[in-house]
Amino acid sequence: MKDTTSFSYGAEDDEFYIDHIKRTEPFERNNHFHSNYEIYYLFSGHRMYFIKDRSYAISAGDLVFINKNDVHKTSGTGDPLHERIVINFSDQFIGPDHYLHDPFLFTPFHHNSSVISLKLQDQIAVQAIFGKLEKELKEQSRGFHMYTKHLLVELLLFSARYLEKHETAPFEHASPLHKKISDIVQHINRHYAEQMTLTTLSEQFFISPYYLSRAFKDITSFSFIEYLNFTRIKEAQKLLRETNDKIIEVAQQVGFENIAHFGRVFKKQTKLAPLEYRKLKL
């Protein structure tokens, strides 16, 4: 049996995208981030989800909210069989200028945990909304664009109210090692512009370089240097979009001492040279 797509509409970088798939083969999503919000719902199976600076064990009935520009990646936990649905949407789709917009709707994206574990009756309610969305986008009857936005608002409102009415269990790391790696990731997120090595981190967090290297990869799916460079390039992209700083200044601000090395790493991650990226995004 091969992976089967139940429904897909749009592309990931569109204003609105939805993808429903059942997988039977091992699958890992590349580490990535994007400027759209993401909602992920697991119908069946189990997954690991690394989001921003911590790993979550996801089970059937879990609803996941990923804020825009947060690094995230899914990976397996053993049995690859799982069914999930993903929605991406932009600020343009239902942003501050839209008449349906309300800051309360975005509460789940700013909660202290990215995951809501729903009870059975709430799973049924959420799945009904997903079903209506798929039906509306398949049929594309007159006014379907408007109704799609209303259904998205219904999902967001349901989730925000759920968080308001239910005490969610405090997030707990899967193990002390998971907590230590999360602490290290948070440190990198704050100090990426400083010079750091695996050795200096291992000394600071009292863990051997070999064990740190192995655990970091196992838990985050990044090697240490991959994550450090990923974080630096992500910030460089922001600076190239939002400032007029010279390329060499941007490189230095995010922690690169060598402009040629910065250019190589930037192009490897974005498929564009820094100057090409700036011109494209202006």
Rank of each mutant, 00 (worst) to 15 (best):
residue 4 T to P: 00
residue 14 D to C: 07
residue 18 I to H: 01
residue 19 D to P: 00
residue 26 P to N: 05
residue 26 P to M: 08
residue 30 N to V: 11
residue 32 H to A: 07
residue 34 H to C: 01
residue 34 H to M: 10
residue 35 S to N: 13
residue 35 S to M: 09
residue 41 Y to P: 05
residue 51 I to H: 06
residue 51 I to G: 01
residue 55 S to D: 02
residue 57 A to C: 01
residue 59 S to D: 12
residue 61 G to H: 10
residue 65 F to M: 08
residue 69 N to F: 10
residue 69 N to R: 12
residue 72 H to Y: 13
residue 78 G to E: 04
residue 82 H to E: 06
residue 101 H to V: 09
residue 106 F to R: 09
residue 107 T to K: 15
residue 109 F to T: 03
residue 115 V to N: 00
residue 124 I to S: 08
residue 125 A to M: 09
residue 126 V to L: 12
residue 130 F to M: 12
residue 139 E to W: 07
residue 146 M to R: 15
residue 146 M to P: 00
residue 147 Y to N: 08
residue 147 Y to M: 14
residue 153 V to T: 08
residue 155 L to D: 03
residue 159 S to Q: 15
residue 162 Y to W: 14
residue 164 E to A: 10
residue 165 K to D: 03
residue 166 H to V: 08
residue 167 E to W: 07
residue 170 P to G: 05
residue 175 S to E: 00
residue 182 S to R: 08
residue 186 Q to T: 13
residue 186 Q to A: 14
residue 197 T to G: 10
residue 203 E to P: 05
residue 203 E to C: 05
residue 210 Y to D: 03
residue 213 S to G: 11
residue 217 K to M: 14
residue 217 K to I: 03
residue 217 K to C: 09
residue 226 E to Q: 15
residue 228 L to T: 07
residue 233 I to D: 02
residue 233 I to E: 06
residue 236 A to H: 10
residue 238 K to T: 11
residue 239 L to W: 01
residue 242 E to P: 05
residue 246 K to C: 00
residue 247 I to T: 14
residue 250 V to M: 04
residue 253 Q to E: 04
residue 254 V to E: 03
residue 256 F to I: 02
residue 256 F to W: 02
residue 257 E to S: 11
residue 261 H to Y: 12
residue 266 F to I: 10
residue 266 F to C: 06
residue 268 K to S: 12
residue 270 T to I: 04
residue 278 R to G: 08
residue 279 K to S: 07
residue 279 K to H: 12
residue 280 L to F: 12
residue 281 K to M: 15
residue 281 K to I: 02
residue 281 K to R: 15
